[in-house]
Computed example of a mutant assay.
Amino acid sequence: MKPVPDIIKPQLSILFIGFNPGLRSAETGKHFAGHSNRFWRLLTESGLTPRQLKPEEGDELLSFGYGITNIVARPSKAASEISKAEYLEGGKVLKRKLATYRPKVACYAGIGVYREFAAKKEVVCGLQHDSIVPGIADFVLPSPSGLNRISLADQLHWYCELRKLTMK
């Protein structure tokens, strides 16, 4: 399987943070590449991107001021396969990335991603009251995975809220 490299540079408007690469992403080396993953569609339908990008066009996100990374680099079929030790180690690496690259918004693509990173039991979608890295807003989205049972309309609501936040 191919490594899935970060799409990242300093001072991004939004750095999207996923759990870890799925198997299809690991096969292709591209983020959110699963056939049922809604990430790219949600970006477009919310107005965050002017057209629907394909996973292989992910590097174009940089031109919009967006990037992608994961809390854990190891691919798996489902996030439930990630161990606590992997989350702890990945969280240290992620904290360094955030401190180094300083995006305006750290956007967690999944409640569980933020729950593990922030070590909080109760997490809701939207802008978080506290930031893990001072000066960087934390925003939580529902996971765009096809395994997530949240409706597309509910997911889209949170992507639109993210767009409103970043357009201020």
Results as ranks from 00 to 15, higher is better:
Ile71Gly: 11
Leu156Ile: 08
Gly34Val: 00
Ile71Met: 10
Asp59Ile: 15
Cys125Ala: 14
Pro21Trp: 04
Arg38Lys: 13
His35Ile: 04
Asp6Gly: 04
Cys160Leu: 11
Val133Ile: 15
Arg74Ser: 15
Gly18Glu: 03
Lys164Ser: 11
Ile150Met: 09
Gly65Glu: 06
Ser80His: 08
Lys9Leu: 07
Arg41Val: 02
Ser80Tyr: 04
His35Ala: 11
Ser76Ala: 14
Thr44Gly: 01
Gly47Phe: 03
Pro55Cys: 09
Ser46Gln: 10
Ser143Pro: 01
Lys77Gln: 13
Val4Met: 01
Pro3His: 09
Gly67Thr: 04
Leu61Arg: 06
Ser36Leu: 11
Ile68Arg: 00
Gly22Asp: 12
Pro134Asp: 14
Glu81Val: 06
Arg24Lys: 14
Pro10Glu: 12
Gln155Phe: 01
Leu147Tyr: 15
Lys54Asp: 03
Cys107Ser: 15
Thr69Tyr: 00
Ser76Gly: 13
Lys54Gln: 14
Gln128Arg: 10
Ala79Glu: 04
Lys30His: 15
Arg163Ser: 10
Lys92Met: 09
Ala99Lys: 15
Asp154Lys: 13
Ala78Gln: 07
Ile14Thr: 11
Gly58Thr: 02
Pro50Arg: 12
Lys120Cys: 08
Arg51Ser: 12
Asp59Trp: 13
Pro50Asn: 13
Lys95Ala: 12
Leu12Lys: 06
Ile14Phe: 08
Glu60Phe: 06
Tyr108Cys: 00
Trp158Ala: 03
Ile136Ser: 04
Val124Tyr: 07
Pro55His: 09
Lys30Thr: 06
Leu141Asp: 02
Ala137Val: 09
Ala153Met: 11
Arg96Lys: 15
His129Asp: 13
Leu152Glu: 14
Lys30Asn: 15
Glu57Ala: 12
Glu56Lys: 13
Ser76Pro: 04
Lys168Leu: 12
Leu43Asn: 01
Cys107Asn: 10
Ala79Asn: 07
Leu62Ala: 00
Tyr87Thr: 02
Ser83Gly: 09
Met167Lys: 13
Leu53Thr: 05
Thr28Gln: 10
Pro55Asp: 06
Lys30Arg: 10
Phe39Tyr: 05
Ser13Gln: 12
Gly110Arg: 06
Phe64Asp: 04
Ala73Asn: 10
Tyr108Asp: 03
Glu27Ile: 08
Trp40Leu: 05
Glu56Thr: 08
Asn70Met: 03
Thr69Leu: 04
Leu94Lys: 04
Cys125Thr: 12
Pro142Glu: 07
Ala85Pro: 01
Arg96Pro: 00
Glu86Asn: 09
Phe32Cys: 14
Thr28Phe: 07
Gly112Ser: 14
Lys9Phe: 05
Phe117Leu: 10
Gly90Asp: 05
Asp6Leu: 00
Ser76Trp: 05
Glu81Thr: 11
Leu23Val: 10
